[in-house]
Design a protein around this nucleic acid. Structure first.
Lengths: 215, 215
DNA sequence: CACAGTATGAGTACTTGTACTCATATGATC
DNA sequence: GATCATATGAGTACAAGTACTCATACTGTG
């Protein structure tokens, strides 16, 4: 290794960023040159400076890690991407790699593996955390791996309704809060279900709760 | 301040512990002498050594932070407790203080406030993060701050139903899975609602999802 | 202007959850 | 044996979500 490599950390939890920074800077070959607390500012950092690698959380406000990944694939192909997430789900893994990720690391494993992962991806390789794909929790299975696309197809009104659905509010409560008829709310719910291919009594609530972070 | 104070960190995410440790050890007056990844080992650490303060996450495997708090109140009254959590919910805050916590800090705020909080609680004071109680999400409000007690009052059959409810299953699906009539499932749901003081269309699902970890 | 998309509101039918009541069977305890 | 808690099943009534249909109004675009 000839030079020191610059790293961007994007995660919405400051303490978590600090933990990651601390791990990375234990190695003399890496230096964290920027941090971002949301997807938007991550992209801004990537526009301003060049990085050898970016460590991305998937669940971030403003723009999800997946959206940042997509942006990086199109704009900063020279920067390696490591996804650092809590979700040991193969669906997320697949989507991340489809969007150009070079590494996929579980937060619980990062303590021991982050440096090794960075070594691999900075040399052009790929690294996937062990334990991925064997999580006990039934994780949302993206039917065709295009949740974000479908989500972004929702109208603003639909998104507003969906946010309140994710807080377990009823159509009446949502209607009161948005100052529209509860029938309109039910229309929005139905349209969201159709747009997202959801079916069944609790499907919408389930989706809303699980994707709350990406709304 | 005369001596260096010893701190225990309990959180299930290693990177997060590292971030917290890093923050704490920026101050020359504190040193992290132990870490724990779950409630059980936190209690073990507290049995083995004396600490001036403990920084506890609420959501941990094995035993929740609340259970650790309860244990500390009865066994290590000389050790100050700071709850470090993501939940800006007054219900949790109240329960934490009822169980003897001295501080309540949001993870997002900890970066700037942890040292000040430790200063306060180690001198016998109490510290509550700003922004607590104003979260946008309607968070579960424990009517009298005794969720654990009520939860343990549930019968095994009720708990089984509740677990499946937390997976967004319908009564019919639960009936099929447990091989009982869906009417029985609905009875269990109703009884759980009564036992827990829940009311409203989505109240049970909301409760089940939010307390999934403690089931 | 015509058209498409969106937001809004309502009707109808069906399913599901909630909140009660009641009944039966089983197993433990006194 | 009587009693109590639990589990099981069902009846009834109402509220809510789902899944359609239709209609009106506004806002852009071509």
């Amino acid at each position: 290794m000839t030079t020191v490599r610059s790293i961007l950390i994007a995660d919405d939890h400051p303490i978590f960023r600090r933990g990651v920074r601390n791990i990375i800077e234990e190695s003399p070959y890496y230096v964290v040159t920027a941090e971002a607390g949301d997807g938007q500012s991550a992209i801004r950092q990537l526009e301003l400076n060049r990085f050898d690698a970016a460590v991305l959380d998937l669940a971030m406000p403003d723009r999800s890690g997946l959206q940042v990944l997509q942006w990086m694939r199109d704009n900063t192909p020279g920067t390696a991407c490591v996804v650092l997430t809590m979700y040991a789900d193969e669906g997320y893994l697949k989507r991340a790699f489809e969007l150009g990720a070079n590494g996929y690391l579980l937060k619980d494993d990062a303590h021991d593996e982050l440096i090794r992962c960075l070594d691999v991806v900075c040399d052009g390789g790929r690294y996937v955390s062990p334990n991925v794909g064997h999580s006990r929790g039934a994780v949302l299975s993206p039917p065709d791996g295009q949740i974000d696309e479908k989500l972004s197809a929702l109208t603003p009104a639909q998104r507003a309704v969906l946010r309140l659905v994710s807080e377990f509010k009823t159509s009446k409560e949502i209607g009161r809060e948005l100052d529209i008829s509860y029938r309109t709310v039910q229309n929005h719910r139905a349209n969201i279900c159709r747009a997202l291919g959801l079916d069944g009594p609790n499907a919408l609530v389930e989706f809303a709760v699980k994707e709350k972070e990406h709304l």
